[in-house]
Design a protein around this nucleic acid. Structure first.
Lengths: 226, 226
DNA sequence: CGAAGCGTTGAATCCTCTCAATAACCGTGG
DNA sequence: CCACGGTTATTGAGAGGATTCAACGCTTCG
């Protein structure tokens, strides 16, 4: 059982920067945050299951959460949520059951919003609805992007794209540090862990060096044309 | 060049039932529809291109529209829009360029909504924003569903699922008539046309008979456990 | 009747998954 | 500090699924 705590000041500040609240003014933000409490999960904890009764939606404060579908033997990840990401907002508008399961990776602290309270809030604070719609739009776009990539690109290309969009550029060179385990990155990209490994070693040809979570890119231009 | 026409009464009625307007009352609906005109496209016409400047979003009145990404040699379809489906609404809230290309399949008549007008409408009619959010939620859910299926199921299973969700049931038997070309169904399911063909012939074993666009299912239960 | 477009079928190739074995890494406790 | 067990990552081999390319049949339409 997870305990519900009041949001700390640091968490409130963090939520203010999250997409879901970033477009709101002080008063609207407070109204939205008043629907939320902080909850903490251990690694591997399941927050909710596909088809389960929906009472809350969430925003990640720290750690990572994976959204996935399917039963024991066959699972597919839909999204990996990082700090600042929210998930399940669509339930404010549509449906009363979860459409996927959610599991904490590592220790995770989340803001948990009560769906009923937020629904009521929509009438008093129309701009809160707009903020949610903005968040939904963003998710829709990135999910479509993901779908198109899955259908169009090979594992190498997907990995190369991830690196290029997450590295800190330093002239022709660049580098990054993976924020989570490789197995989680594999899931995010829709690959088996082995396939990610192979993609990395194939990318060595294009000047990518991997050691643990640290990754160095020799020539950004070379990597781009993979 | 496509000409803009006033929405006919039939089209207005049709739009009223479409997801994007179905939750609105008379007055709100009229306000929303006042942002729209009817436009007609020939088969293969491109409505807009990825990265193009976004001025409108659309709702399909008749025909089909495919949303896709990628360049000449390598394309991937993201969604096939049928009558009643809207696309591009996310631009009301986020961004100013299209994130994918859109092409009419067959002759298509669409309602074309002016983004600027709808944006202005949001402040006066907060429930219009809510209707758009509902539509976005629905799209997000179905896109995630599609993504999960792509990652989890084989071509046979995807085809079987399509049949089962679109057939009219008659006891153990069932049947349906494809609303469009098989090549378009293939795109929708993320398959090469040949793969769809092969999937159909593999499903003969499970009691699926295909002749032209007419499809008969001998035993729904048998098909379910594919 | 011929041409064009759609759909099917076959063969070859490519990519990814699965399974299994090995190697590297991590936190724990001696 | 090192040894240990457990987890995570890599590598290889094999199989399966889907794509590509090409040829052929079928239908439609001029």
């Amino acid at each position: 059982m997870t305990r519900a705590l009041k949001l700390s000041n640091a968490h409130q500040a963090m939520l203010g920067d999250a997409l879901i609240a970033s477009s709101l003014d002080r008063q609207e933000r407070d109204a939205l945050l008043s629907c939320a409490v902080a909850v903490r999960y251990e690694p591997q904890d399941v927050l909710f299951r596909e088809d389960g009764n929906a009472r809350y939606f969430y925003c990640v404060l720290s750690g990572y959460v994976r959204l996935y579908r399917g039963s024991e033997d066959r699972e597919a990840d839909i999204r990996i949520c990082e700090p600042g990401d929210s998930f399940g907002e669509c339930l404010v508008l549509v449906g009363d059951r979860y459409n996927y399961s959610a599991q904490a990776m590592e220790h995770a602290i989340l803001a948990r919003f009560d769906l009923g309270q937020v629904k009521r809030l929509l009438d008093e604070q129309p701009r809160v609805g707009r903020a949610i719609a903005r968040s939904l739009s963003q998710h829709l776009l990135s999910t479509m992007d993901c779908l198109a990539r899955d259908r169009m690109q090979t594992s190498q290309q997907r990995v190369a794209h991830y690196l290029l969009t997450h590295c800190t550029n330093e002239g022709a060179r660049a580098s990054l540090r993976l924020p989570f385990q490789k197995s989680l990155l594999a899931r995010k990209l829709g690959l088996a862990p082995e396939a990610l490994s192979r993609a990395f070693s194939a990318l060595r040809t294009s000047g990518v060096t991997v050691s643990g979570r640290a990754i160095a890119i020799e020539d950004v231009r070379a990597l781009r044309q993979v």
